[in-house]
Design a protein around this nucleic acid. Structure first.
Length: 274
DNA sequence: CTTTTTCCCTGGACGC
DNA sequence: TGCGTCCAGGGAAAAA
């Protein structure tokens, strides 16, 4: 489940592998992957493009080309890139696309559950597209007052608001649970009802858990690996996610599981204040 | 407008 | 061994 830290880790590895390279050949074998929705057309459009940068915005990767066009990639649940410096055949049944570069390397895209998307944008168009669906970067210049203002007036559970990418870009189920555990706030607190102090705690918790997770190259659960096959290790520092029934690291009470905002949620009923 | 629900997709875990 | 059921979950879209 790539969230901000995992996508940032992929971005760094991918940038190192593809920046400056030209796409010599492209095959896209999943009819659901691309926008425009004709994968053959998108593959043809990609051939000849030279990569000038790989950026990240929220959980999106933005591959920038010399022509000004951009490929917007969302990995969703199980999308991953593999960097194959020496092109070698593989019979990976989950392979969805292969980009052959003029460096001699192949970039293989695989996605078990096929939720991932590749969208090709003409010069200048990707910014407006992202602006309408994403709020600010949590690790950018974001004050706790600004976060509080974005949550103001919302009656939805705090967890639901933090998962809303228009409020804040990049959090997913794992890091929301971790951030709320760190801030000692209950996942069902109405998002708009935080005191200044509580908003500061959430703000601090979000930023610290994301920074730490980027340092540890994300969390490896099931499918996630970097393009060079490395794994993240943030899962070793989880206090909440996936630990229902285990004692809380802070107070010892058993962590509880619930469904909040339609997502499996783990929290401490004793020290996360309702 | 906000909030909730449904759906997409596959593989792994589990019960019988 | 095999079959059915449930769960994982980001975001689009529909429903409320």
């Amino acid at each position: 489940m790539p969230e901000l830290p995992e996508v940032e880790t992929v971005r760094r590895r991918l940038a190192a592998a593809v920046t400056g390279a030209r796409i010599e050949h492209a095959v896209i074998s999943d009819a659901r992957l691309t926008r425009p929705d004709d994968p053959t057309l998108v593959a043809a459009e990609l051939v000849g493009e030279r990569v000038v940068a790989v950026e990240r915005r929220g959980k999106y990767l933005i591959v920038r080309f010399e022509t000004g066009r951009a490929l917007l990639v969302h990995l969703r649940m199980t999308g991953s890139f593999l960097h194959r410096p020496a092109a070698e055949p593989s019979d990976d049944r989950h392979k969805r696309a292969v980009l052959a570069l003029d460096t001699g390397a192949d970039i293989v895209y695989r996605d078990v559950r096929r939720f991932g998307t590749w969208s090709l944008f003409e010069p200048g168009d990707v910014e407006a597209h992202l602006a309408q669906k994403l709020g600010p970067e949590p690790l950018g210049r974001l004050s706790s007052a600004a976060l509080q203002a974005r949550l103001a007036g919302r009656r939805a559970p705090l967890k639901a608001a933090l998962l809303d990418q228009r409020v804040l870009a990049g959090l997913g189920n794992i890091y929301v649970d971790e951030a709320l555990w760190r801030s000692q706030l209950h996942t069902r607190r109405p998002a708009g009802g935080l005191s200044d102090d509580e908003a500061r705690r959430v703000h601090r918790a979000i930023r610290s858990v994301l920074r730490r997770a980027v340092e540890r190259q994300g969390s490896t659960l099931r499918d996630y690996v970097t393009p060079d096959g490395e794994t993240g290790s943030m899962q070793d520092e989880f206090h909440a996610y996936g630990r229902a029934g285990e004692p809380c690291d802070r107070c010892g009470q058993p962590l509880q599981r619930a469904v909040v905002a339609g997502r499996g949620t783990t929290f401490c009923p004793a020290c996360q204040q309702p």
